[in-house]
Simulated assay, not measured.
Amino acid sequence: METRKVLSGLCYFSIFFAGILFPLVVMFASGDDVTKSHAKKAFVSHLLPLIPVPLLIFALFTDINAINNEAIPVFTLVTVGIMVLIGLIVTIWNVIKGVKVFTME
């Protein structure tokens, strides 16, 4: 198996073991344009689940009064649900892209 395929596939699968770090290192260390392209795509896809984090922090501070009044913190629950959904979609997408890289000719 070619080094290009292995590094490109591992960039996508690194969502399970190295997160943002592995694609970033491959992006700067690799001299191959195809591998760099895959590393950039994997890096961006690993950052996507972090987008709603400020919304979650805002939701937690907003719903503190709801928690004190024994109400259901709806905004926080919706935000956590969105984060879980985005994380699941990104993980599935990375697995599909990693498999495609390993199986391409």
Score class of each variant (00 low, 15 high):
3 T>D: 02
5 K>P: 07
6 V>W: 14
6 V>N: 07
10 L>G: 00
11 C>S: 12
12 Y>R: 00
13 F>D: 01
13 F>G: 01
14 S>K: 04
15 I>D: 01
16 F>H: 06
16 F>R: 05
18 A>R: 05
19 G>N: 10
20 I>Y: 07
21 L>I: 09
22 F>K: 06
22 F>P: 03
23 P>Y: 14
23 P>V: 15
24 L>M: 07
24 L>P: 01
25 V>H: 03
25 V>A: 05
26 V>P: 01
27 M>G: 02
27 M>V: 05
27 M>H: 08
27 M>L: 10
30 S>C: 08
31 G>H: 08
31 G>S: 11
32 D>L: 14
32 D>S: 08
36 K>T: 03
36 K>H: 04
37 S>I: 07
40 K>H: 11
42 A>W: 07
42 A>T: 08
45 S>L: 06
47 L>F: 01
47 L>I: 00
47 L>T: 01
47 L>E: 01
48 L>A: 12
48 L>C: 14
48 L>T: 15
49 P>E: 13
50 L>H: 14
53 V>M: 10
54 P>L: 11
55 L>M: 02
56 L>S: 11
57 I>H: 15
61 F>L: 12
62 T>D: 11
63 D>E: 12
64 I>S: 14
66 A>Y: 07
69 N>W: 02
69 N>S: 02
69 N>D: 03
69 N>T: 02
69 N>L: 02
71 A>I: 05
72 I>D: 05
73 P>Y: 13
80 V>W: 10
81 G>D: 12
81 G>Q: 12
85 L>P: 03
87 G>P: 02
89 I>T: 12
91 T>A: 09
91 T>L: 15
93 W>T: 04
98 G>Y: 13
98 G>T: 12
99 V>D: 10
100 K>R: 06
100 K>C: 02
102 F>V: 00
103 T>I: 14
103 T>D: 10
103 T>Q: 14
105 E>S: 13
